[in-house]
Design a protein around this nucleic acid. Structure first.
Lengths: 221, 221
DNA sequence: TCATATCTGTGACATCATTCACATATAAAA
DNA sequence: TTTTATATGTGAATGATGTCACAGATATGA
């Protein structure tokens, strides 16, 4: 007798949509490029310069800015500082962002020490792991038991969590985080998390990303 | 006197296109879900079951399969084993994949020990770092100086590299890898790498992904 | 064995994203 | 100051991606 997976067999808590828009992602890319140009000592650039650097067409750059009501100077290009300010405005970039991290495996430990987070003032206020042996160690931030999630989330008014737990426990931990008021999850566990409408989940599946690369290299050869 | 960034100022080596197709990524997602279902003891499922789990519509699932000429059974749904075999066939999934990793910082060290890679038989044959103090240590794989890149790439016929070096040196290292015959790069450095047409670059910008999440949480509230 | 309910497979349609093309503004040069 | 070359800004056209709807196949149950 075959065992058929019917959707009815599961308690479907939530629906998740793929929500991170490409045009928004491009805004972050532009931002990155602009910071690079600024570091090289430039004050201004043109849409085609930025497009070249960001790997998109000049039309795309201008269209994106048009959609987000970001203005440049006719003929004069864009002032980098103005542009950065406009983008920061659109993406509501704030100076300091507090978050928590759950799961101190390989990925988790790397992320709590990740310098780019520090540079961009993304501050992990605490990390969590069920393994008591990890709790004794310190990795720049305290490693706490999951029982303390509520305390920390409430104390620091955290709305964003990074999830780096094994696949098997990811949905359970996510549910717990959502119950405690977390509204955004960056998920590194190789599962598609389910979450309610008002919670954004961004799934990063490193294994899949690598396999995509492998796929294309095989295609070329 | 303003300094304007003109595209002519740079030696534009290559053009990179954003190439990883969404429908292919979904194939990987389906694969992941199917393995999950199988582990739970199921033999068969329907397009809407898989869609629900993968976070897409049933139509989308069927359309994807249709596009890749993957067949199911009218009314009877899909046999999980058949489906997995078909998908593996499309993505040219091979049992063992050899690759190298450059940059043994936080992310690099995490990735050489990343269990999902091991599970999926993605094997990092060697890692590289300019820092001699890291070369003395062992993290499951040998840490070698960059001078040995050519030896290893030739010896193991490696075509895929994971790049986890600082942003500032990412393009230089990438150029070097490409010169040595690397055809696919999974890049964790927060820059948009330029590469020739026949080299696939998959950029994972963890900072941007996190900032996207933050953006949406602020929008909701 | 036959009837039927229901799930697949895929064109037709709709929506979303990107490119094109040109009117408009203006920085820079004369 | 005037001219001109050139970059922006944005509707319109094109192309890609996802949804709908239904014909056709068949597993299931009577």
């Amino acid at each position: 007798m075959l065992k058929i997976a019917l959707v009815e067999f599961f308690i479907v808590k939530y629906i998740t949509k793929h929500i991170i828009r490409n045009d928004l992602k491009r805004l972050f890319t532009y931002r990155l490029c602009l910071i690079g140009f600024k570091r090289k000592g430039f004050d201004r650039l043109y849409s085609y310069t930025l497009g070249e650097e960001a790997g998109v067409s000049a039309d795309q750059v201008r269209k994106d800015f048009s959609n987000y009501k970001i203005k440049g100077n006719k003929k004069g290009g864009y002032k980098i500082d103005d542009l950065l300010r406009s983008i920061d405005d659109v993406i509501k970039h704030q100076d300091e962002q507090y978050m928590i991290l759950v799961g101190m495996g390989n990925i988790g430990r790397a992320l709590v020490q990740y310098k780019t987070f520090k540079l961009r003032k993304m501050i992990i206020v605490a990390s969590f792991d069920i393994d008591p042996s990890k709790q004794s160690k310190r990795f720049g931030v305290p490693v706490l038991p999951l029982e303390m999630l509520e305390d920390i989330i409430k104390k620091f008014h955290v709305h964003v969590a990074i999830l780096a737990v094994p696949a098997i426990s990811a949905q359970d931990v996510a549910n717990r985080l959502i119950d405690l008021g977390i509204k955004g999850i960056l998920n590194f566990a190789p599962v598609i998390l389910k979450a309610p409408e008002d919670v954004i989940v961004n799934n990063i599946n490193i294994g899949d990303e690598l396999e995509s690369v492998i796929y294309y290299t095989q295609k070329v050869m």
